[in-house]
Amino acid sequence: MARLLYLYGIALKDEVEDKEFSQMKTIDGKNNVEVIAYGECAAIVSPVEVEEFGEEVLEVKTNQMDWVQEKAYLHHEILMELKEMATLIPMKFCTILESETSLEKKMDAHETEWAILLQKLSGKEEWNVKIYNHPGQLKEQVAEHHPDIQKKREEISQMSKGMQYLQKKKLDQFIDEQVVQEQQSYVNQIHRDWSDLCEETAEKKVWNKSVTGKEEDMCWNCAYLIDKEQVEKFLSSVTKANEEGESTGWHIEVTGPWPVYHFSTLSKSEVE
């Protein structure tokens, strides 16, 4: 049976040499994790079979969402475990190499760059922050306190019924726009504060409500690379912001530490 290699990540050889991986889960649940050293680095892989992870099979399987979910979750779980054992450059889901020779070719080409990146990532953690806002309170605040709105309201009250209807609609729209502006400036401010505590940040796409299933608007979705020594400070700032923002509908969700998925890109975004 032809043997492919599923690549989980790259670590420094010194950090993984004497570690025990045989008890770890693997993507196919059959073969064990293997460590293939090359120069200063080591690739963490497990063999997979063509029948399960070959190109043609994967083309079908990656269209089956249940398979993708189960395996992608497993991929993540394995990377979470690996990251506890060593500084890790995490690979994307289903990074599969044809043979040990092709892996060695990759290692040969990128080993130096990977070693530098690993040294840079050592002692750092990735945390993910999502900021939600229930616009109700902000809307009320804007409607009651925005000077332009008070003025507009008075103007509208002097108008004819038909005009009033139209102008009120316009005013509602204006309020909504102000709320979005308020949300943006809140997020910008808080992101600036947090950025000071971080090594790097990676902004992610905000999800719409049909994806989050929440009533709140997602206003911010971002990954932060933080030195372990700063994490406590960062999280304390998040906790404080959560307490202070509650009354104006803010809610901050933090998850982590993650494998450094967002901060492992090399000088070129893809490894040729």
Binding site: I89, M91, L97, P259, Y261, H262, E270, V271
Partner: peptide, 15 residues
């Protein structure tokens, strides 16, 4: 995250 992020390697990769 895992479908979109992490290092992507080109060539030699089955998929």
């Amino acid at each position: 995250t895992v479908l979109d992020k992490g290092v992507a390697i080109k060539g030699d990769i089955v998929i």
